[in-house]
């Protein structure tokens, strides 16, 4: 079963130096957080959309589409309830609060997207090596990569386990919400137990291959910054600097918005 997050596409984004990708990831966060007006978020959104399509990460977003839809709907409602403005539209909703809710929803979806682009286009090892080269300790990096690695494992065992329990008559699709939550117990326990069991073996295999045997360590993967890397990095920095300039100059706000 195909449950890997990394997509073996070899796109332009895949070929970028992981350090550049990590820096862009962080810069994107800054750029997203600067404005509260959705119009001003359009440029970064366009850039992210381009990356999504170039890298092929849309495929992964499609996998989590239900989560995204639920998040979008609930965030649109909640931010409207937690803010208000002068131009009343209907019920408790004003033009300002609507704009703000849209911006906050965009913020969330864009953050998820940019994270997805990073992990869809960067191998686990590249990501970790990149982080380490940027100053993170090896063991911390390894822990993060292990956590990422567990996701597909858990996903595929969950599929098998739910089939096994459905064969025994477990019906996950009916009943009240509390009954349904109770029904997840027969899924959760085996998922936990099998995950714990496999992480135990994972630990043994890790040590048996000399993990932490010495202070120093070679990294087989080596990256060199190419022309494309420098260009992309420079452009990204310029973009964020420009965004910061506009934000400080007072652009990108929503006039008349009152937040609670």
């Amino acid at each position: 079963m195909d449950s890997e997050i990394y997509l073996d596409n070899n796109s332009f984004i895949h070929r970028l130096d992981p350090r550049v990708k990590i820096i862009i990831f962080l810069l994107t966060f800054v750029a997203i957080l600067l404005f509260e007006n959705p119009l001003w978020m359009l440029p970064i959104m366009v850039l992210i959309l381009i990356q999504l399509f170039v890298s092929g990460a849309v495929k992964n977003l499609r996998r989590i589409r239900y989560i995204l839809i639920v998040l979008t709907v609930s965030s649109l409602i909640l931010w409207n309830l937690f803010s208000t403005g002068e131009t009343q539209l209907f019920w408790r909703i004003s033009l300002e609060s609507m704009l703000f809710a849209i911006a906050r929803t965009m913020l969330m979806v864009l953050m998820i997207s940019t994270g997805m682009i990073l992990i869809s286009s960067t191998r686990n090892e590249e990501l970790i090596n990149g982080m380490i080269k940027l100053g993170m300790p090896y063991r911390v990096g390894f822990a993060i990569s292990t956590a990422l690695r567990l996701v597909p494992t858990i996903a595929s065992s969950t599929v098998t386990i739910s089939q096994a329990q459905r064969s025994r008559g477990l019906d996950l699709e009916s009943g009240s919400i509390f009954e349904r939550i109770k029904k997840f117990l027969p899924l959760l326990v085996p998922v936990f137990i099998s995950t714990i069991r496999s992480t135990n073996i994972f630990g043994m295999a890790l040590e048996s291959k000399g993990f932490g045997a010495r202070e120093d360590r070679t990294f087989y993967l080596e990256f060199t910054m190419g022309t494309a890397d420098y260009i992309v990095l420079t452009l990204s920095i310029l973009f964020v600097l420009a965004s910061i300039y506009f934000a400080i100059s007072g652009y990108g706000r929503i006039d008349g918005l009152i937040r609670f």
């Binding site: 065992s157 098998t160 386990i161 089939q163 096994a164 329990q165 064969s167 025994r168 117990l185 027969p186 899924l187 959760l188 326990v189 085996p190 137990i193 099998s194 069991r197």
Partner: peptide, 13 residues
């Protein structure tokens, strides 16, 4: 039609 899966740990809870 009863179905016993390969790994008992995938169903015991």
């Amino acid at each position: 039609v009863g179905y016993v899966f390969q790994n008992p740990d995938h169903q015991i809870f």
